Amino acid sequence: MKTTKKGDWFEIIIPPDWNEFTIDHILRVVWNGPKKLIHMLKMEKQVTVNGVPVDWHSPLNRGDRLQLKFFADADFGVIPSYQDIDVLYEDDHLLVVNKPAGLDTHPNDLKQNNTLANVVAYYLQAKGEFRKVLHIHRLDKDTTGAVLFAKHAFVGAILDRMLERRQITRTYLALVEGILHKKKATIKEPIGRDRHHPTRRRVSPSGQPAITHYKVLKVYRNKQQTLIQCSLETGRTHQIRVHLSSIGHPLIGDILYGGAATFPRQALHAAKMTFIHPLTGEFIECLAPFNDETSIFPDDGIELLNMHKDLTS
């Protein structure tokens, strides 16, 4: 599908398989767009065909130019703050960033300026793109790896829905204490707050359902450690950390959940992200290299991950 950005407008050349589709059908059915934003686009006449407004229920023809006003300038919503940034993928609609350790994903108050969202805002500002910074998911402060951001509200709402429906696959690498004897397993234990600790979570019968899949990639018997890949069916706070601790194999360095302080943070890295681009239909795959100055992960960790199929496939 041929798409281009022309100023504030996103333009699509209607492909053969969209012949006789209507604007309404494309926005509601093909893209599964949010009703509120579709209504706004319609009321504010921010959708045209071949440069002019048309009836949203009239059939389009192959080769027509469908234009949508997605790229109007907007306030970042956070304070732009400079820091080196590792962009894994970017186009006009979204970007995937490799988050370093020690950064929150987004501010907890309006004055905070030392988060990944602030760094993304500065990066966009330097490029002359004034977009509200919209994170689609988050990672813990000391977890590294791929984080997805949307550049405008329409694609952000679609990505939010895709995440809920497990249409965005995130695969983690984790280094745990001890030797995992099951090569592949699923942990299904509900997770709730620990009333004795303000930030810790725990397995609790009254908690929210949580499902973690893992597969062993490599065993280091001399160190009594195991490298595993994990994927989630749910997105509870600290889910991987809680689940692995609950089976007696906490993450290396995760002192909050019983891991030994042999590494300055929990050994958890969001190494891979895959999804179908919600507007162009392209398959997007991002691999996040380790970015710690002295990483505890083995050098072949990403290669080992790539040799195995995703657990959700």
Results as ranks from 00 to 15, higher is better:
residue 5 K to Y: 00
residue 15 P to R: 11
residue 26 I to G: 03
residue 34 P to A: 09
residue 40 M to G: 01
residue 52 V to Y: 09
residue 55 D to Q: 08
residue 56 W to I: 07
residue 57 H to V: 08
residue 60 L to D: 01
residue 61 N to P: 10
residue 66 L to C: 00
residue 67 Q to D: 08
residue 69 K to A: 04
residue 73 D to I: 13
residue 80 P to C: 09
residue 83 Q to I: 08
residue 84 D to T: 12
residue 85 I to T: 11
residue 88 L to G: 05
residue 90 E to H: 12
residue 92 D to S: 11
residue 97 V to P: 01
residue 102 G to V: 01
residue 102 G to E: 14
residue 119 V to Y: 02
residue 120 V to F: 02
residue 124 L to E: 04
residue 126 A to I: 13
residue 128 G to D: 14
residue 133 V to W: 01
residue 138 R to T: 09
residue 139 L to R: 00
residue 140 D to E: 06
residue 143 T to Q: 10
residue 145 G to D: 01
residue 146 A to N: 02
residue 154 F to L: 06
residue 163 L to K: 02
residue 163 L to V: 08
residue 169 T to C: 02
residue 175 L to V: 05
residue 180 L to H: 00
residue 180 L to M: 05
residue 182 K to V: 14
residue 184 K to L: 12
residue 187 I to S: 15
residue 199 T to P: 02
residue 199 T to R: 13
residue 200 R to K: 13
residue 200 R to A: 06
residue 200 R to F: 13
residue 203 V to Y: 00
residue 206 S to T: 15
residue 211 I to K: 13
residue 216 V to Q: 03
residue 229 Q to Y: 01
residue 230 C to Y: 00
residue 236 R to S: 09
residue 236 R to F: 13
residue 236 R to Q: 10
residue 239 Q to N: 09
residue 240 I to Y: 03
residue 241 R to W: 07
residue 261 A to M: 11
residue 264 P to S: 14
residue 264 P to M: 10
residue 266 Q to S: 11
residue 276 I to W: 05
residue 277 H to D: 10
residue 278 P to C: 01
residue 281 G to K: 03
residue 282 E to I: 06
residue 287 L to P: 01
residue 288 A to L: 11
residue 294 T to S: 11
residue 302 I to K: 02
residue 304 L to E: 11
residue 305 L to K: 03
residue 306 N to S: 07
residue 311 L to T: 06
residue 312 T to W: 13
